Amino acid sequence: EETYEVDGEEQLKKVEKMLRDRNLDVEVEIHNGKFVIRAK
């Protein structure tokens, strides 16, 4: 499992696309105004 923490939606979209391109399962949560992306 990998976890990424990003600020802002633009970064979120980039990271999310990169992970989905690797066929990973992606979950996004918001913690303290930051996006936390978990990939399995």
Rank of each mutant, 00 (worst) to 15 (best):
G8P: 03
V6P: 02
K17T: 08
I30A: 07
E9L: 14
G8W: 09
V28E: 00
I30C: 14
K13Y: 11
K14R: 12
L12K: 09
E1W: 15
T3E: 10
E27N: 07
G33I: 00
E5F: 13
F35Y: 13
I30D: 07
R38K: 11
G8I: 06
I30L: 09
E2Q: 07
G33W: 00
N23A: 06
V36I: 14
E16P: 00
K40Q: 08
V15M: 11
E10A: 08
R38M: 05
K40Y: 12
Y4F: 09
V6Y: 03
E16G: 02
H31T: 09
E29G: 05
V6N: 03
E9N: 07
G8H: 08
E1Y: 15
K40P: 05
L19V: 02
E10M: 08
R22V: 04
K17I: 08
V6W: 04
E1N: 10
E10T: 07
G33S: 01
E29Y: 14
E1M: 14
N32L: 04
L24I: 09
K17Q: 13
R22Y: 09
K40S: 10
R20N: 07
E9F: 13
I37P: 01
V28W: 07
E9R: 08
I30N: 08
E9Q: 09
R22K: 10
D21R: 04
E29D: 06
N23G: 15
L12E: 02
K13D: 06
V15Q: 01
H31G: 05
V36P: 01
K13G: 07
Q11E: 15
F35H: 03
E10G: 03
R20I: 06
R38V: 08
R22Q: 10
V36S: 01
R22W: 09
L24N: 03
R38C: 12
Y4I: 07
V28Q: 00
E2N: 07
A39V: 15
F35A: 03
V15Y: 11
R20M: 10
E29R: 09
D21I: 03
R38I: 10
I37A: 01
G8M: 05
D21K: 06
E9V: 12
E16Q: 12
V26L: 11
V15S: 01
D25A: 11
L19T: 00
G8Q: 06
E2T: 11
N32R: 04
E5Q: 08
I30W: 13
N23W: 11
L12N: 01
E27A: 09
E10H: 06
R20P: 03
K34H: 11
E16N: 03
E5Y: 15
L19Q: 00
L12P: 00
R38F: 06
N32S: 03
I37L: 05
D7H: 11
D7L: 11
G8R: 07
V15I: 14
D25E: 14
L19A: 00
K14M: 13
M18D: 05
E1A: 10
K14F: 11
L19P: 00
V28N: 00
K17F: 03
V28L: 04
V6T: 04
A39S: 06
L12Q: 02
E2C: 12
M18W: 15
N32M: 06
N23M: 07
E10P: 02
V26E: 00
E16M: 15
E29T: 14
L19C: 05
G33E: 04
E2A: 08
E9A: 08
E2M: 13
D25R: 13
D7W: 15
G8K: 05
E27L: 13
G33Q: 02
K34S: 05
I37G: 00
Y4G: 01
E9T: 09
I30G: 05
D21V: 02
E2G: 08
E1S: 11
F35M: 05
E5A: 06
R22F: 07
D25Q: 12
G33C: 14
D7F: 14
R22G: 06
G33M: 02
E2W: 15
V36G: 00
M18G: 03
M18K: 05
R20H: 10
K14D: 09
N23R: 07
F35C: 10
R22H: 09
V26I: 13
L12M: 13
R38N: 04
N32D: 12
Q11M: 13
R20A: 09
